[in-house]
């Protein structure tokens, strides 16, 4: 049975490649044509799409998926041999990376973007800063001492560097 399944998997390899967008134009056309003409292939393609949706958390409308997965599990022999970890990138990692990038972009773009600052280089203490630090002590937590500060020049958009 296992052999049959592996042979079956091999026959449908171009479906997963089609889903990943890794086929050439010619290969994609061939895969779509096969998909159009073969109900079994259509079912397998739907199954792959469902698995992808499940991994992405888009699984609200998948009637019978659990039943199908469990039935397929029951049909399979148990393999006790260690499974070699595939080296290729998994879709899950790509999803996580994409989500992370989206969150980072969202946070970055939520900051005041008109004049975002970027540190350039450390500079000596500006001459007239100390009176301000002392005056702020009226409200500061350091009651009677001014903190040691270090300074960097920053460039704001719209400002000559």
């Amino acid at each position: 049975m296992n052999t049959t399944h592996e042979a079956g998997d091999s026959a449908y390899d171009n479906l997963s490649a089609l889903l990943d967008g890794e086929l050439s134009d010619q290969g994609a056309r061939l895969a779509i044509r096969q998909l159009r003409d073969d109900p079994t292939r259509q079912a397998r393609f739907a199954e792959y799409c469902a698995i992808g949706d499940l991994l992405r958390g888009q699984h609200e409308d998948l009637p019978g998926l659990t039943r199908k997965v469990m039935a397929a599990l029951d049909d399979e022999p148990t393999v006790l041999a260690p499974l070699r970890k595939p080296r290729e990138k998994r879709p899950l990692l790509w999803l996580a990376a994409a989500a992370s990038a989206a969150i980072t972009w969202g946070l970055w773009s939520a900051l005041p973007s008109q004049e975002s600052s970027a540190p350039l280089a450390a500079i000596p203490t500006p001459a007239d800063v100390m009176p301000y630090l002392v005056a702020h002590q009226d409200y500061a937590q350091a009651v009677l001492t001014t903190p040691e500060m270090h300074y960097t020049r920053v460039a704001l958009s719209g400002e000559a560097r």
Partner: peptide, 29 residues
């Protein structure tokens, strides 16, 4: 030029920039 200041451990932060005809210095714990 605009300047950023920071105390040890980052407790006090400062930013200076030009706003119109004024030099604005913002600082606080």
């Amino acid at each position: 030029h605009s300047v950023r200041g920071e105390s040890a451990r980052g407790m006090v932060n400062l930013m200076r920039r030009q706003v119109g005809g004024f030099q604005a210095t913002v600082l606080g714990d």
